[in-house]
Lab assay of single mutants.
Amino acid sequence: NITNLCPFDEVFNATRFASVYAWNRKRISNCVADYSVLYNFAPFFAFKCYGVSPTKLNDLCFTNVYADSFVIRGNEVSQIAPGQTGNIADYNYKLPDDFTGCVIAWNSNKLDSKVGGNYNYLYRLFRKSNLKPFERDISTEIYQAGNKPCNGVAGFNCYFPLRSYGFRPTYGVGHQPYRVVVLSFELLHAPATVCGPKKST
């Protein structure tokens, strides 16, 4: 009989979020998941679920829940969905086509923008091939755009693969920082350890 609540607040209220190319993952297990707390949290810009209804989450049990978190621009949030393409979905964070879970995003301009620009948040701009679902690539190898080998030196046709967002408070909404948490639900042939409040007695 599990009684402790799942530590969703640790994920959602973290002081610093990860850059999207180096997205953070927390495994959540052996706890009671009260999703209504999240669902009623006012400032969400997006709360979209795939393969599961957000209002039914509290009735369900899962083997594991993974909480992935990172920061992207407002106009990139739409790429955090199954079957998407674009710089983020291709080179930074890719969801599987059969994704079961929820994508939760909110504007973090007050936290993550600075006058003069916040350059701490990076994304991958160049990559030889697209990421596989949930693949994480933190390499900083110089990207070779031409035929000539770069030998690890940036220059003509040789690019550092990461780019900084440089968030400023005055940017338009599409270019403002958004914090994103992706909850993915794993249902294995194993005992369920993460259940909603109704199922955990």
Rank of each mutant, 00 (worst) to 15 (best):
V103G: 01
E135H: 09
L188C: 14
D34L: 05
V173Q: 14
G146Y: 03
D97I: 13
T193M: 11
I142H: 06
V52T: 09
K128H: 15
Q144E: 11
F126L: 06
K48Y: 06
G155F: 04
N13I: 05
V182E: 00
G74D: 00
L122Y: 12
D97G: 10
L131M: 08
F126S: 03
A105K: 06
P7N: 15
Y93M: 02
N64I: 08
G83I: 05
S164W: 05
V37F: 15
K114N: 11
N4M: 10
D97T: 12
Y91L: 07
W23K: 01
L111W: 13
Y165I: 03
Q176N: 04
T15C: 05
L188G: 15
G74H: 04
Y178F: 15
N107V: 04
P161K: 04
L162Y: 04
N151D: 13
E76H: 10
C158E: 00
P149G: 13
A154E: 15
A67K: 03
A105P: 02
S29Q: 11
P133L: 03
N157L: 02
R136V: 08
N75A: 15
G174Q: 09
N130F: 09
S113P: 01
P54A: 15
P7H: 10
P82Y: 01
D90E: 09
R168P: 00
V37N: 12
G196Q: 11
I142V: 12
Y123C: 13
T140Y: 10
L125G: 15
S36Q: 13
Y39V: 11
G166D: 01
I72S: 02
C49P: 00
V11Q: 04
Y93L: 02
N1Q: 12
P169T: 06
F45E: 15
P177Y: 03
R27C: 10
P149Q: 11
G86F: 03
T201F: 13
T170D: 01
T15H: 10
R27M: 10
S69M: 07
T201K: 15
F156V: 09
N92H: 02
V115P: 12
V153L: 13
S184I: 09
Y50N: 01
F156Y: 06
N30M: 07
N40R: 15
G172I: 00
I80V: 09
P169C: 03
C195W: 10
H175C: 01
K114L: 10
F126P: 05
Y171I: 00
N64S: 14
N58V: 09
V115C: 05
F12R: 03
K199A: 15
R16A: 11
N87I: 15
T63K: 14
N40E: 14
N1S: 11
D59Q: 13
G101Q: 01
V115H: 12
F17K: 02
K48G: 04
Y171F: 07
N30A: 09
A145P: 02
L5T: 13
K132D: 10
L111F: 11
F99W: 11
G196A: 11
V180Q: 01
F47T: 09
V37P: 08
G152Y: 07
V194N: 12
N147A: 07
A33S: 10
I72Q: 02
A18H: 10
Y119F: 06
W106R: 07
L131S: 02
S129P: 15
S164T: 09
F160H: 15
N92D: 01
A190W: 10
L183H: 01
Q79R: 05
V77E: 02
N109V: 10
S69T: 11
K110V: 08
G51C: 04
V20Y: 02
Q84L: 07
A190Y: 12
I138D: 12
E186W: 11
S53A: 12
N147P: 11
V103E: 00
S29E: 12
N58I: 08
V20N: 03
C6Y: 06
Y91D: 02
V181A: 05
N118T: 06
Y159P: 01
Q176T: 02
R73D: 08
A42C: 06
S53R: 10
P82T: 04
K94M: 04
G155N: 06
Y91K: 09
D98S: 11
R25F: 02
G172P: 00
K128C: 07
C61L: 07
V153I: 12
F41P: 09
E141D: 14
L111Q: 14
A33T: 09
F185M: 10
N107R: 06
N107C: 07
G116W: 06
N107Y: 02
V103Y: 01
C102N: 03
A14W: 05
V20Q: 00
C102P: 02
I72E: 00
A154M: 09
C158A: 02
V103F: 02
V11E: 04
D59F: 08
Y178W: 10
Y91I: 06
T193P: 12
R73H: 05
V115E: 11
V182L: 01
G86K: 03
C6N: 07
N120F: 09
V52N: 05
G51P: 02
K94T: 00
Y159M: 01
L162G: 01
W106E: 01
L122N: 10
L57Y: 06
R168K: 04
G51T: 05
A89W: 02
C31Y: 06
P161W: 04
L162N: 04
Y93A: 01
S108A: 12
I142L: 10
L187V: 12
K128P: 15
S184E: 07
P149Y: 10
A33G: 08
F160R: 14
T3F: 09
C49I: 02
R179N: 00
F47R: 08
G155C: 04
D59A: 11
L95V: 12
I142P: 06
D59R: 11
S19C: 07
D9V: 13
Y143K: 02
A81S: 08
T201G: 14
R16I: 11
A145Y: 02
T85F: 08
Y91S: 07
V65G: 08
C31W: 05
D97W: 10
S53E: 15
F160S: 13
Y119V: 07
V37D: 11
P133V: 06
V32L: 10
L60Q: 12
A154V: 07
C195G: 11
S184N: 11
F156T: 06
R179I: 00
G74L: 02
S29N: 12
D137L: 03
C102K: 02
G116T: 10
F12E: 02
K48T: 10
E186L: 07
F99Y: 05
D9P: 08
N4T: 15
S19P: 08
D97C: 07
P191V: 10
H189C: 08
N30E: 09
D90P: 03
R73N: 13
V52I: 13
V65A: 10
A14F: 04
A46K: 15
Y123S: 15
T170K: 06
C31K: 07
K26C: 08
N4H: 12
L187S: 15
Q79C: 04
F47N: 05
A145G: 10
A81L: 05
Y143G: 01
A46G: 11
E76P: 02
S78P: 13
A42L: 10
G116K: 10
N13H: 09
N118D: 07
N64F: 10
R16G: 08
P161H: 03
S113I: 01
N107S: 07
F156P: 11
S113L: 01
Y66C: 08
